[in-house]
């Protein structure tokens, strides 16, 4: 059987690479490589050798031009040494090969700003949505209840009943789209797979702090039409063991954290399809 191989990109301000790689391993990947962006640009590491790409949390370039903007620009224009291609070419080939990308927090911001989400019609280089400053004007670290859309094509959220409880940690998580048509399309196609909700996961909410950033339609995460590319503001890699839960000292919780399912689903998909 093929070895399931995950890649976590770091460098220029990515911060969550260690726990993302840890989650990939726990989720069932045979290998979880942390590669510095320099190793991709020099060609030492190639995306082609991996199945699952993790663009994880951090402050790429300090979010100086807006979250993940500078990295989106870098990935779009920087070329890989010794090859006649840009990094972005490797990424689009990765998607075309049927492989998986998960963008968390800063990684979600990066995917959206490169145009890789929601990528309606399979156009992965046209930005139609964004993530901008939280309505409260402040960075927020707090746990949120996230209602899952069971009809979503996202392969990551398969098997989640009702919803999932995860931490958000961001200053720019308010999801917006370019026009009503985009919103209509992503809702109709069930691409808005995660929405901020109350404790019972019953309905999306626009109330602070349950909805920590004022996202349009309470959107916390979206996927592309294939369900293989997904981005979300909350951090699934930050809840893979019960001791990470804010109330683990007072609630009966399973040993495994609820965020691990994202990585288990990814590993399962890779093992079944490659």
């Amino acid at each position: 059987m093929t070895k399931a191989k995950a890649l976590v990109i770091t460098g220029n301000g990515t911060n969550c690479e260690t726990e993302a790689a840890h989650a990939c391993k726990l989720g069932g990947f045979d290998e979880a490589r942390i590669a510095h962006i320099a190793e991709l640009l020099t060609g030492e590491v190639s995306l082609d050798d991996y199945h699952f790409l993790n663009l994880t949390g951090g402050f790429l370039d300090g979010d100086d031009l807006g979250s993940a903007k500078a990295q989106a620009n870098r990935l779009r224009y920087a070329t890989v040494e010794g090859k006649e291609e840009r990094l972005v070419d490797q990424i689009t080939r990765f998607i075309a090969d049927g492989k998986l990308i998960l963008g968390v927090c800063n990684g979600f911001q990066l995917l959206v700003k490169m145009g890789m989400l929601p990528a309606l019609g399979g156009n992965y280089l046209n930005q139609t949505a964004t993530l901008t400053y939280n309505e409260c004007g402040r960075f927020q670290d707090r746990w949120c209840y996230l209602k899952v859309d069971p009809a979503s094509p996202s392969l990551y959220t398969r098997g989640i009943e009702g919803g999932v409880y995860l931490p958000v940690r961001h200053g720019e998580g308010k999801f917006l789209v370019d026009d009503a048509k985009t919103l209509e399309a992503i809702e109709a196609k069930h691409l808005t797979c995660l929405k901020y909700s109350g404790k019972d996961y019953a309905a999306p909410t626009m109330e602070f702090p349950e909805n920590p950033n004022g996202s349009l339609n309470a959107i916390a995460g979206i996927c592309d039409e294939t369900g293989r590319v997904m981005g979300l503001m909350p951090h699934p890699e930050a809840f893979v063991h019960r001791t990470q839960h804010p109330r683990w000292t007072r609630e009966e919780l399973p040993e495994e954290g609820a965020g691990l399912i994202f990585f288990k689903n990814a590993a399962k998909y890779v093992k079944e399809n490659f």
Binding site: N15, C16, E19, G57, F139, Q140, D141, P167, E237, A238
Partner: peptide, 17 residues
């Protein structure tokens, strides 16, 4: 809440409980 107290994934007892 403006300070990320959970990055790196090792948080066990958080500032608020």
């Amino acid at each position: 809440r403006r300070y990320d107290h959970e990055v790196q994934g090792g948080s066990v007892v958080k500032p608020f409980t």
